Structures are given as structure tokens and as C-alpha cells.
Amino acid sequence: MGERLLDLYDALLLDLDGTVYRGKQAVEGAAGAVEAARDHGTTVRFVTNNASRSPRDVAAHLTELGVSAEPAEVSTSAQAGAAVLAERLDGGSEVLVLGTAALAAEVTAVGLKPVREATSTTRAVVQGLSPDLAWRDLAEAAVAIRGGALWVACNVDVTLPAERGLLPGNGALVHALRVATDREPVVAGKPATPLMAESVRSAGAVKPLVVGDRLDTDIEGAANADLDSLLVLTGVCTPHDVLTAGPGSRPTYLAADITAVTQGADALRPGPKSGWDVRADGGKVRVSGDGDPLDLLRALCAVSWAADGPLDLGDDHPAMETLGLTDPR
């Protein structure tokens, strides 16, 4: 099997929704994978773009789902946003908070003063998702930002997965302020680097591995921070998405789920795989052979990423259908 991922990395930076859990259920095998990492001496950090909950609440939620977690193991975009503010402001500066009490608490924790109304002494605005955010809050932020206040967005995720489907995320409201102020925020969460940097610092890691289900946040965020990454297919990303990923959002490893952290690293790398012959022929992918469909996907990635342009993936091999790659997109 060769060296396992746990043998190569001293910390796992784990995304949550779509990676460790889906909705109200833990991903099968997630609890065991986390415990295997701890038993091996690998540090675990749960890294979330969600700025609405405190580390204590996140840890409690994970524990309820059967994945043991401590508040100190949680890194949130609220913490990263507060760290960005602390680097750029004098102690005691007023910060207008658009977000929950958890975000305000992180602002307080770094020695700044959270407020809810813009005044002449407001030095910054920090924006995180809150279900109670209203027009009046956005108006206060617009006044402060137009007045020269530093603007920090905890994340710019346009949508938020929920039981009823995709709902407006923090990024949708950030965009509203962009339009209203003609300004751009400093972004703290993935794929920007502050949250990754805070997670690495918190873990005391020298060589961490990012594990996530989204190319546009987890994998791109890892690339931006010059970190290796493992993409899992238990959340947002589909086989088609990973095949068509741009150079800045291609994972180092590819697996079905988080249990892959206990598996051999070489087997998880995109590239040629035993049992499969994959080649590009006149702009069309040709597939022959037999074996694990995920190995086929890894081989397809190598061919697709090396191509000069998009390839026709319409090969009728049964494994292509298993991967969902035969239907028109």
C-alpha cells in the first residue's frame, strides 16, 4: 500500500459540511477516520467558512453527530476575520459587526470593540452570515464603508446548503454591499488564505493536508496557501466538476470519502492506474479496461488536465456511466 496519507502529513484540516457531515448526519466512516488520525498522532482541525457559530457550538454539534471534537480543534472564518482586523487596527478600535453574537465575541477576543451602528469612530466592518441580518444592518455598513472603514468579509460563499436546498449565503449579501458601496472587502475565509493560515497556526502544523468537498473553496484555498489537498465526493463536487477543474483548483488526491486518510497516498493521486487505458483521441476520450471506477476517474483527470482544451467525455464504457459522465451536462 505504501505510505498512507496519515504518514505523510502532521495535521488534517477538515472541511465540515459535505466532508465530515451532510445535513444532520455524519458521513459514514468520518468518526473512525478522525479517531484514526488522533491515534496516529496527527493533529485534527475542523475548518469552516461558517462564521455564525462559535467553536464551542461547532464542537458540540460534531459530538452530537458522533464525531468527537473539542472547541480548540475548531477554526472558523469568524476567528480568521477577527485576526485580520487585529492585524490592521489599533486595540480598542470600533468594529461594526454584521453577523451573530459568535462573530461579535471573536472581535472582542482580539481586543476590539464590536458595535452595531456606524459612527464617526467606526474603523472597520466585519461581515458574516446571520439569519437575522436586515436592510438596516446593511445600510449601517454602507455608511461606514463609504466613510473609509476597513471592510472584512468572513467568507464569500454565495449559497448555503440547507435541508430545503441552496439558500443565500454570506457572499450574496457581500455582493449587495459591493454594489451599494463600489468597494471590495478583504476576505478571510476559504479560498482566501487567512483562515487556512489561522488553522495551520492553531494546529502547529509543518505539513498539513486540506480535506474538502468543494473545488472553489477547499481545494482552491489549499492551492492559494500552497498546501496539498484531498477532494472527497461526499458533498458538492461531482466527477465532471473535478475533470474540468482549472489549474488553481485541482486536488493532490481524490477519494470517495474522508476514510481515505488511512489509505495509501500513491493510489489516491490522479494519474495512470492499473487496469485502465485512458487516452485522448481527436478531442474525445477513449476508455478501455476494468477495475475501480474511482481509479478510472483518477486516470481521466490526468488525461483531461493535460489536454489543451475541453475533451468529449462521451465514451460509452459502463464505468463512465457509473461515474455519471455519460449524460449530457
Rank of each mutant, 00 (worst) to 15 (best):
M320G: 09
A86W: 04
V126S: 06
L85F: 07
T252N: 03
P272R: 14
P318V: 04
M196Q: 12
A267S: 13
V232R: 05
H317E: 00
S77H: 06
T322H: 10
Y253S: 06
L173M: 14
L129M: 08
A299K: 05
A60I: 10
V143Q: 14
A153M: 03
L167W: 10
M1P: 15
S288F: 00
P131I: 01
R183W: 01
E35C: 10
L177D: 10
D327E: 15
D132Y: 08
A302Y: 04
A162D: 11
R279P: 02
L96T: 11
L297H: 03
H240R: 15
A144D: 09
G23D: 02
W151R: 00
A141T: 08
A299T: 06
L160K: 13
T63M: 03
T63P: 03
A83N: 05
V186Y: 09
P328S: 05
R183D: 02
D292E: 11
S130K: 00
R116H: 15
P310E: 07
D132V: 08
T119Y: 09
P55G: 07
V27N: 04
R136Y: 13
E94W: 02
L103Q: 04
D308R: 03
T262F: 11
Q263V: 04
G171W: 12
D266Q: 12
A299L: 11
N224S: 07
A153C: 13
C301N: 12
Y9D: 06
D315F: 06
A149H: 09
G324L: 12
L195S: 03
G271V: 05
S288T: 14
S229K: 05
L323A: 01
G271H: 08
A118L: 01
S199F: 10
E163T: 14
G99C: 06
P247I: 07
L323W: 04
A205G: 12
D257P: 12
I145W: 01
A144C: 07
P272Q: 13
A109S: 15
G99F: 08
G2E: 10
T48W: 00
G23W: 12
A101R: 10
W276N: 07
